[in-house]
Design a binder for these strands. Sequence first.
DNA 1: CCATACCTGTAGCGACTGGTACAGTAAACC
DNA 2: GGTTTACTGTACCAGTCGCTACAGGTATGG
Lengths: 190, 190
Amino acid sequence: MVRPIDSARRAELLDQTMRYAAEHGIASLSLRPLAAALGTSSRMLVHYFGTKEELIGQALTAARPDIPALLSAHVQAGHTPAGMAQRLWRELTTGGEQEPRTRLLLEVMALALTQPGLYRQHAVDAVRAWLDPLSAALRAAGLTARDAHARATMLVSGLHGLALDRYLTGDRQRTDDAAHDLITAATKTT
Amino acid sequence: MVRPIDSARRAELLDQTMRYAAEHGIASLSLRPLAAALGTSSRMLVHYFGTKEELIGQALTAARPDIPALLSAHVQAGHTPAGMAQRLWRELTTGGEQEPRTRLLLEVMALALTQPGLYRQHAVDAVRAWLDPLSAALRAAGLTARDAHARATMLVSGLHGLALDRYLTGDRQRTDDAAHDLITAATKTT
DNA sequence: CCATACCTGTAGCGACTGGTACAGTAAACC
DNA sequence: GGTTTACTGTACCAGTCGCTACAGGTATGG
């Protein structure tokens, strides 16, 4: 190894690719327009990542949110189910670092329906990343395994559906109200 | 008009196109493979529908479910909010006539995020088609306008999210449980 | 029968796709 | 300084895309 590979440049390109894909879509993504938007050439993208498929795969992996970090960042929310769900909803909607990733995730989930070979694993992983800690927290709050599973699913996938609605319609009030009611109902320990 | 246009053939092609798109995806749909699967030629598809965009648009319009018919078909469910929501969930999941349409709708909703010009109207229409009657039923059951809106949103978009989860993971038990809990919580008139 | 449309096959256009061959440059370690 | 490797530009390939020009076939109403 006389000259080390520029991994920093690769990471930067992956992040930019993720943002570009979130804005323009994965399905219709092609190398030349992407490269132009990133200030490079399709030749370079192929050099760095081998194939377009590999580029997208690595970008999706790099875009995976760090759930433990997100949960521990705001300690005041605690690890109560309601706090975690509110945190999830805020991540999905409040246009910060996570919103483009979420838009991307929703497209990946939809594309996985018809092209499971390319996207299914990414989509399932993303669902489980929120589902498992929420389910555990609900069990810790006293629910049975069945109920904890059902409530966690109701929260994670329900909020995904609400996020899709929100991105589509732009109706913040209605989706916020619905998310609030959903979280309240799902975390009630009655 | 010496020779009438073959509208029956067009309707048949639209239905077959919808099924093909639900299976293979809209985003990567191209005329030649589609035509081959339908036993015709890309030349004919263009002849009948003008452009690919128009073909997809008409197929999506033709795929729109007739909600009033779906609701009135099973009278025993009544028009109670819970009955309507259960009907919606069954339509989304029980692999009948509506399931390919629903898979298609989920992809359309996701694609509308990045290509609103093509798909946003279809997606928003599909959401409202279930949202409005559900909201009306919830108001009739005694909820305030705000609560009815929120609950209906929670049901429609929440169940969409659960359907996406179900299609992805294939986990019927977990998603059915979650849908049941969601419907129970959203239609409770406390 | 005839005229008028719709229908349908063949061939091809220009644009774009992902990926490559080839050449040259630049950086890092010995 | 020399050698090895990563980087990068140009040009291009075969394949696919949506769509069309052209021609011939076919059914229908008069």
